[in-house]
């Protein structure tokens, strides 16, 4: 029993020893995120004039005493185009604020004067600067599968019993490219969240093709991009990629892989949605496909319209669908 008493004593001493002050810190200090916020260096553009046809690193600069969630919003004063750059850091420089002339909310920028607004919302900081665009950004190249203009593919449409509106429109929205766009809107009457879908097969784009002729076999290199308009009605856009693994001109979801990714459309206006093929997940795990992402075997792309809640409403429009290689499409 004396031995046991001594052991309990040792445990208590070790317990007190454990309360000693540590000399090291795991991770950053909380004061780097939650202390008082001060600007050390003001916000400004790296130059008065930006040209996007060369390698010039057009960016913005600022410094703070601690990390903060910041946002730079650049607005074309003529076009109304908007570019947003967001970050969380103590310093804004060419590492985190380079602007290549691309657009977050369509339309695209012209050669025009722009207003750049810097905000740190939590701290009530708002600073403005101006910049002139001398040369606009060239259009990104890739495999366009639908722009809903004259080269309209012979896509198939599936309507659910909810009677979803799924069709090509030219109004009231202004299409980001050309004059027409594709609209999906409806109400989930039957309570299954499914409203309808649009499918585009490779042979609809080029009749001799059975798969989309993407220029890479690496899933981490291929991006599927489209411009999506949100109406402030949170909706889910599920994009499925069906593979033709055996090159028999049929994409069979029972014997061949289908990969998918869902995007919650919760913004207002036109915005680019880019999906890296390697970030899609298998959507028909119980099928007998080879469970291998093969970007060069995609035979069909489907767009499934879902509500975020049972018996909810959902709406969005989309336009200009394009596969790009190596980087996402930037309008």
């Amino acid at each position: 029993m004396r031995l046991m008493k001594n052991i309990w004593l040792i445990a208590i001493i070790l317990g007190f020893w454990a309360c000693k002050k540590p000399k090291e810190v795991d991770g950053p200090l909380v004061t780097e995120f939650y202390g008082p916020f001060n600007l050390v260096e003001g916000f400004k553009a790296s130059a008065d004039t930006f040209s996007f046809n060369n390698t010039q690193a057009n960016h913005f600069t600022a410094k703070f005493n601690r990390s903060a969630d910041w946002k730079i919003t650049i607005k074309g004063l003529q076009s109304g185009a908007v570019k947003e750059i967001v970050g969380s850091s103590k310093v804004i420089d060419f590492n985190n604020s380079v602007w290549n002339g691309s657009t977050t909310f369509i339309p695209v920028f012209k050669s025009e004067n722009c207003e750049a607004t810097f905000t740190v919302e939590d701290e009530g900081v708002l600073i403005k600067d101006t910049v002139f665009i001398k040369t606009v950004k060239p259009v990104d190249q890739g495999l366009v599968i639908a722009d809903f203009e004259t080269n309209n593919p012979g896509f198939f449409i599936d309507y659910s019993s909810d009677g979803d509106t799924i069709r090509v429109e030219s109004a009231p929205l202004k299409a980001p490219y050309g004059k027409q766009y594709f609209l999906m809107q409806g109400y989930d009457k039957n309570g299954d969240t499914y409203l309808g879908q649009l499918g585009i097969e490779a042979k609809d784009v080029i009749s001799s093709d059975t798969v989309f002729k993407t220029s890479t076999k690496a899933p981490s290199e291929l991006y599927f991009n489209l411009l999506v308009y949100g109406f402030n009605k949170p909706s889910i856009l599920k994009i499925q990629f069906g593979e033709d693994e055996n090159n028999n001109k049929i994409t069979d979801n029972k014997t061949e892989d289908v990969y998918a990714k869902s995007v919650t459309v919760d913004w207002v206006g036109w915005k680019v949605v880019s999906i890296k093929y390697s970030e899609t997940t298998i959507d028909n795990a119980s099928a007998t496909g080879n469970k291998k992402q093969e970007p060069d075997k995609i035979g069909i792309v489907s767009f499934i319209h879902l509500t975020t809640a049972v018996k909810g409403k959902a709406a969005y429009a989309f336009d200009y669908m394009i596969f790009t290689t190596g980087k996402p499409f930037q309008p």
């Binding site: 317990g15 309360c19 002050k21 540590p22 090291e24 810190v25 795991d26 200090l29 909380v30």
Partner: peptide, 16 residues
């Protein structure tokens, strides 16, 4: 359980 941090977690002071 009467425990504390070995390294400070976001601060030099340990949490108990």
């Amino acid at each position: 359980n009467f425990l504390s941090n070995i390294k400070g977690e976001g601060a030099l002071e340990a949490k108990n």
